[in-house]
């Protein structure tokens, strides 16, 4: 192995913005996001796939960013915790639910929970019920050392309520504007 590592220039599309980064092949996606793109919302705990803190969405599906290389992410759309709120800065239902339910303490694990839960709830129609059992299943791959999980499980149900409320409001708005 030569002393100078070969560098690769990759276009990373994160939260709707595409930026080039120049990295060695061994640069983990998590490090590219944090150090090269300076999006430090994505946290790094174990770096071997177990804790879930680094979870980001790859084309909408949760993956561990510590178990991918940045060079593999070209051509994929990545969403990090910074990309969950909408363009007007309104919190994502899961973020609002974590605040409502006290679903975080130190916050280290939070970005991984938020991305994981946000993707999982996409499988549910607004209005559909998410049982506690299902909520536990959704967060079963993420570790939290502070909360004891109870409030996180509550937040999953609350997030689904908020989605339902927002969908109801959007329907109401659509009905009003249609009636105008």
């Amino acid at each position: 192995m030569s002393l100078i590592e070969e560098q690769f220039t990759v276009s990373l599309s994160v939260n709707g913005t595409t930026r080039p980064v120049t990295v060695p092949a061994r640069r983990l996606l998590s490090d590219a996001i944090r150090h090269d793109l300076e999006l430090t919302g994505t946290h790094v705990g174990c770096e071997h796939g177990v804790c879930g803190a680094c979870t980001v969405l790859l084309d909408g599906a949760p993956v561990r960013s510590c178990l991918m290389f940045a060079v593999q992410a070209e051509g994929h759309a990545i969403t990090t915790v910074e990309g969950l709120a909408d363009a007007n800065g309104r919190l994502h239902p899961v973020q609002e639910a974590f605040r409502d339910c006290h679903g975080l303490q130190c916050g280290f694990c939070t970005p991984g929970f938020l991305t994981t839960i946000a993707a999982a709830l996409e499988e549910y129609e607004p209005g559909a019920d998410v049982s506690d059992e299902e909520a536990r299943e959704i967060v079963g791959g993420n570790l939290c050392r502070c909360t004891g999980y109870q409030n996180i499980v509550k937040a999953v149900g609350r997030a689904q309520e908020i989605r339902t409320e927002r969908a109801g409001r959007a329907d109401g708005d659509a009905a009003t504007s249609a009636g105008r």
Binding site: M1, E5, P24, A25, R26, L28, H48, F69, V71, Q72
Partner: peptide
Amino acid sequence: MKPPPFGYAAP
């Protein structure tokens, strides 16, 4: 914990 350097090919 970071991987050691390696060559990379994506044929």
